[in-house]
Simulated scan of single mutants.
Amino acid sequence: MIINSSIQSVTSLYGASQPSRAYRARRAADEGIRDEVEISAAGQNFSEMLQKLREEPEVRQDKVDYYSQAIADGTYQVSAENIAAAMLGQRI
């Protein structure tokens, strides 16, 4: 018994008996069957947060103004520890 030829003939018959994708789509449309998508609560929360982030300005002008003024006044001080940690890629 040759298995390969038997499997090929069975799979070809199975493929021929399956309705085409276009036929199934038409049939579903005729029967009023509709696809549905349901978004989880986590997905909805993520979408809401993303929308809020998109509404925020890209530059926080209040921070820019504060630090620009502090640098101009000479009152902006950074500790040597923080500079060294940043150079080494560490966080304090």
Rank of each mutant, 00 (worst) to 15 (best):
P57T: 02
T75D: 02
P57V: 02
Q44I: 11
A22M: 03
A86I: 10
A22P: 01
I2M: 04
N82K: 13
I7H: 09
R21P: 00
V37Y: 09
R91P: 02
L50Q: 12
S5F: 07
A86E: 13
R21D: 00
S17P: 00
E31G: 11
A22I: 02
A80M: 14
V10M: 02
L50R: 11
A22Q: 06
R91V: 10
I3C: 06
F46E: 10
V64S: 08
Q8M: 06
E58Y: 01
S68G: 06
K52D: 05
Q18P: 00
V37Q: 13
G32C: 09
S12R: 13
A28N: 08
P57I: 01
S5Q: 15
I33P: 01
D73V: 00
E48Y: 01
T11N: 12
S68D: 02
R24M: 14
V78G: 05
S20W: 00
L13V: 00
R91Q: 12
S9L: 14
Y14M: 13
L13R: 06
E56C: 05
V37A: 07
E38L: 06
E81C: 05
A70R: 13
Q90I: 04
R21M: 01
E81R: 06
Q51R: 09
A84M: 12
V59M: 11
A28D: 09
Y66T: 07
R60I: 06
Q77D: 03
A16G: 02
A25N: 04
A42H: 13
Q44M: 12
G43V: 08
R24T: 10
A84E: 15
G43H: 11
A72R: 10
K52T: 04
S17R: 12
A85F: 03
V64W: 04
D35H: 05
Q61D: 01
I3D: 07
A22E: 09
Q61Y: 00
I71R: 13
A70G: 07
L53K: 05
I7L: 13
E31C: 10
Q61R: 02
N4C: 10
D73K: 01
V59N: 08
I92Q: 10
E31V: 10
Q77V: 06
K52V: 02
I39A: 15
T75S: 13
N4D: 12
Q61N: 01
E38A: 08
R27H: 04
S17C: 04
T11Q: 08
I33Y: 09
G74N: 01
R54Q: 05
I7S: 11
T75F: 00
F46N: 08
A28S: 07
S12A: 13
S5T: 14
R26S: 13
I2N: 12
E38H: 09
Y23Q: 12
